[in-house]
Design a protein around this nucleic acid. Structure first.
Lengths: 333, 333
DNA sequence: CTGAAAGCGCTTACAG
DNA sequence: CTGAAAGCGCTTACAG
């Protein structure tokens, strides 16, 4: 592609000044008389001049780009995070570089390498296959980065997460206060840290309210609606329960299906609460009570954190943990 | 931000060759012996060297970035388009620059200026305030661009659109074939070109099947659910109808509410069909028949078109029009 | 208040 | 097969 666009040199020539002076005007720097400044501004406008952002990036060491690495975009979960990132990025005059990995290991590394190669001023990473060893390499690259919702147990990395423990606690406590005494728990999977933290919140709440933990009503349903359904059927055929807390909405929806099939009423006989606040939770019959994650805010906070890093301010803390919000609908008393 | 990253010079020094030779290796160009190539490759790996993409962009005239300008991201409508764009961008080894405008005029121009300033190799634009005059300026900037879903009547611009006329025709024909003879039409708004084209499809279908057009059952409901509801109530109190075609799903949902309130059955008494296939259309009672737009594909096609432009191949046509798909559910016979 | 010059990290003819 | 050099379009000390 041949480009023979107008450059700073053309503007300088036309204005009868040096490139430096034009540059000062572009960047709003002092040291240029009003008269010349206005003249240059006028010429830039007349010639429809747009400074070459790539050249500015090279010369100025700043590209004003922020990279975002995220698994997917069509999932509303990620879409909300992206939205938050995009909001804050834009309002701070940065531009967003978005790339999806579909949680593939090779892709994750590839784009992280790319983004730490000088093309962005900082990177926000939501990835699943980045280990401590790789983190070390990243740090040598001198491009600041922030992780979203990643459970680094070490304190090696800046990260923004959701307080899943607290969310699990709140949901369980809400059920208890509504009168539930035998609350089943549907796990995502034992390796899913978010589900596990919600589970820990559940255990703590039961403990605090002196409710005995019954392992036979705690099942792993792998975050899937189908398994939420079958596992709930299993529980119902053996046990009396009056509440179900599912670690995500999909499983909760499956649980509701099972409960209705057994001709039990929601919430009169059994209360159900989920996690995530997905779109379908608003349309289910009955509508599903759930715990909403602050996704958009998570995106925003990660940009704020990253910007501090880029500006070389020392953030107060390496970890920002955001609270969830309880959404009360018709599936709970 | 100080960066003292490893550069091509460091690699060249370490390998005892010139920068050019390293560059040839990076870019997989011929003219380097296997032995030296391997040596350089090894050193690059050892030093965790990542070529600076900004410098490559400046020197090589190609940034391998594609800019996408879109109103919003949290709306699934746009999210699906973005997804399509992202897919194709990635599979062609380009990177996505995403920026949202919220359909604000100033913002649209601002980001278009930015993207045509050398930072991307091409731009995909979904905007609402760009006129022919501005298009002229864009063209001078030598950065190829493609519009999505924009109704340029002139042939001045490359664009990918949905065949709304055909979609409107298909929906109407489907109702007619299901036995409907008096089909109300709910418009988006008279200035919305997509709604207008669907409306033209509706008119054509009625004509083709010799059904008389009745202006009193054609209403403007501004794409909104609430107005879909009130306008349908209006129609029902004056007229007997046996079908409703709404130019989007929101209005169709409103229409269904009105019909049910009048104690009429869907689809036995009145069939309802919408447009868009939004998430809620799957959960309504009854589920809503609708016309799905090929959003993801639209994103993909726009990238394909843009890539041809970037590679200076002449695309066959300036305009790509994509067909919709009829989704049959329970709101129609 | 203004300009000449070096430099950012690459790529690409060109010469050998 | 390899290297020295110019150049991409800016920014930023530095000198005046």
């Amino acid at each position: 592609m041949k480009k023979n666009n107008i450059t700073i040199k053309d503007i300088a020539n036309k204005a009868g000044v040096s490139k430096a002076t034009v540059s000062y005007v572009i960047n709003n720097k002092p040291g240029v008389s009003e008269k010349i400044r206005n003249k240059i501004l006028k010429i830039m406008k007349e010639m429809n001049y747009i400074p070459n952002a790539v050249a500015r990036g090279l010369a100025g060491k700043k590209t004003h780009y922020i990279g975002l690495i995220i698994p997917d975009i069509s999932d509303m979960f990620y879409a909300d995070i992206i939205k938050g990132v995009e909001n804050k990025t834009n309002s701070n005059n940065y531009l967003l570089n978005l790339v999806t990995t579909h949680a593939e290991k090779a892709k994750e590394k590839q784009v992280i390498d790319l983004f730490t190669g000088g093309i962005v001023d900082g990177v926000i990473i939501m990835a699943y296959h980045i280990n401590e060893e790789y983190i070390k390499i990243l740090k040598e690259r001198n491009v600041p980065f922030v992780f979203i919702d990643y459970p680094f147990t070490t304190n090696s990395v800046y990260t923004v997460t959701v307080d899943n423990f607290d969310g699990g606690y709140k949901a369980t406590e809400y059920l208890i206060k509504a009168g539930c005494k035998k609350i089943a728990f549907l796990k995502g999977s034992s390796v899913a840290w978010d589900s596990e933290n919600r589970f820990k919140g559940y255990l703590k709440a039961l403990n605090d309210y002196s409710i005995k933990i019954d392992d036979s009503i705690i099942k792993d349903a792998n975050f899937r609606r189908e398994e939420g359904y079958t596992k709930t059927l299993e529980i119902l055929s053996n046990k009396d329960i009056d509440g179900v807390f599912a670690a995500n909405d999909q499983m909760a929806l499956g649980a509701m299906k099972a409960i209705k099939e057994k001709n039990l009423n929601i919430p009169e006989d059994i209360s159900v609460i989920g996690f995530d606040n997905i779109e379908s939770s608003k349309f289910s019959e009955p509508t599903l009570s759930t715990v909403e994650q602050p996704l958009c805010k998570m995106g925003e906070k990660s940009v704020e954190l990253l910007l501090e890093l880029i500006d070389e301010k020392k953030p107060k803390s390496k970890k920002i943990s955001l609270k969830t919000e309880l959404i009360k609908r018709k599936s709970t008393k």
